[in-house]
């Protein structure tokens, strides 16, 4: 590689490859040619480029060991896509697809926002004596929930609630049942109560 101090030479060397390939504009081509006539260093650079290209072109042409095209069984290839119409030419399909996606998102997000109740208030639960038939849970507005239930905590040993226990005594209940269980007048049925909140703000009580 030639070391060049001259800034003009540097600019010319940048153009030499394209000059050699006749890919410069007319004026650039003339400019490089005039410089080459006067500069031996740049001429050597051009010779070096020419030598490299000759070497690359003298590399043997590699051929596949077998005729790959002959091996192709065109009968099993999918037919040329004659009837394929670009999506943009069928706007109604695109609009329909977008609408469907939005609908799925809307339904999914609505499902997520619904409160998750493990026990139906109106159905008797055979496994839980607290929710017996004809039981009428006390209705308490959610805002007063903490205030209502706090006296009960002081009277019971609180243990951490555990997730995914198959035990039927572990249930998820709404604020209504919490109020019912927390009734200080009725402590006969419960020994320990563990309370925790999940992401949806529901309460889990272990009896």
């Amino acid at each position: 590689m030639i070391f060049m101090n001259d800034s003009i030479c540097r600019q010319i060397v940048e153009l030499l490859d394209a000059y050699r390939d006749n890919e410069l504009s007319g004026s650039e081509q003339t400019q490089v040619k005039n410089h080459l006539d006067a500069c031996s260093n740049c001429r050597k650079e051009l010779e070096s480029i020419n030598r490299l290209i000759n070497d690359l072109q003298s590399l043997p042409i590699k051929t596949p060991a077998v005729d790959i095209v002959d091996k192709l069984d065109l009968s099993i290839l999918p037919l040329p896509a004659d009837n394929v119409v670009p999506f943009k030419k069928r706007p109604w399909i695109a609009i329909g697809a977008v609408a469907a996606v939005l609908l799925i998102f809307a339904v999914a997000s609505q499902k997520q926002n619904e409160p998750r109740l493990a026990v139906n208030h109106n159905q008797p639960s055979p496994t839980n004596p607290l929710i017996a038939e004809n039981h009428k849970p006390i209705s308490v507005p959610p805002a007063r929930q903490k205030e209502t239930s706090s006296p009960a905590f002081s009277q019971h040993t609180v243990i951490p609630a555990q997730k995914n226990l198959p035990d039927h005594s572990e249930i998820l209940v709404s604020s209504a049942e919490i109020a019912y269980l927390a009734d200080p007048q009725d402590t006969s049925l419960t020994d320990t109560i563990g309370i925790a909140t999940d992401e949806d703000g529901l309460y889990e009580i272990k009896i």
Binding site: I61, K62, A65, K71, L72, L77, P78, P80, A81
Partner: peptide, 30 residues
């Protein structure tokens, strides 16, 4: 094949390129 061989430096991969190119060409000829 020759170009793929010089770009990838591997004969088997170059053969794969020829074969895949044929298939894609056939599919998209229109």
């Amino acid at each position: 094949y020759n170009a793929a061989y010089r770009i990838l430096g591997n004969a088997e991969e170059a053969e794969d390129v020829v074969q895949d190119t044929c298939i894609k060409l056939h599919q998209n000829i229109n």
